[in-house]
Design a protein around this nucleic acid. Sequence first.
DNA 1: AGTGCGGCCTGTCCGC
DNA 2: TGCGGACAGGCCGCAC
Length: 273
Amino acid sequence: MPELPEVETTRNGIAPHIEQQRIEQVVVRDTRLRWPVPEDLAHLAQGRTVLAVTRRAKYLLLALDNGNLIIHLGMSGSLRITQTKQQPEKHDHIDIAFAGGKCLRFRDPRRFGCLLWSQQNPLMHPLLASLGPEPLDDCFSGEYLHLRAQGRSIPVKTFIMDQHIVVGVGNIYANEALFLTGLHPLVPAKTISREHFGQLIAAIKSVLSRAIAQGGTTLRDFVNEAGKPGYFQQALNVYGRSGQPCKRCGTTIRSLRMNQRASFFCPLCQNGG
DNA sequence: AGTGCGGCCTGTCCGC
DNA sequence: TGCGGACAGGCCGCAC
């Protein structure tokens, strides 16, 4: 399930293959993603050149010389660099074929992802315009989180997964960051001190950076541009480890459900706020 | 305005 | 061996 490290891994992988390359053909086999793929996508993109591949939150942004593609990988999406002549497989919904035979191939079995066109600055697109700061930016600080948490009674885990507060922190890394900080996931956001938020910020930056360095986390779906999995799952302390001993103190890791999502924590290491 | 939840999807796993 | 149901969850959009 692609979170920020997996999207960044994908960006790092595809950029050198497609930047400054000319799009020869676009093939859309299934338009039924989270939002319909634009009907005129081929007309818009064919013959154009990819100028740059950037990332904002979990969105990949392909700047063409006449507009922008906005891509979200959803839950099960992946982008791979293949040869155009290579036979597409089930769930390979979109091909962007380049001069020279390389192809950017979008696969998404569950179709929670999207591919949209933005004529103007994609950062102004309604989906992106009101997003919170990037977690690895310097402006994302304990002071900022503390300010935003004033009057918020929601659990801290829900708080840091809110894309309007900070982007890119999904379920896996929220669980891991809270473990590293010693915060129970249900602690109300407004009760956490600025100092404790400072530690939480450091944990978020640390876990995201290390996950990027490891090529992301692969639980079932995620593969990089070459079809290879990430390795950070080996470093997970709590996610998916319900019933297993805490790597720090040996206490049995427990889980609970909040907002229809699994939360994992060590009852001893994460004893409150 | 803040909060919580339904819905979108398919593959995998589990119990019968 | 087949089948139904639970589960996985990012995130919009809606209801309260």
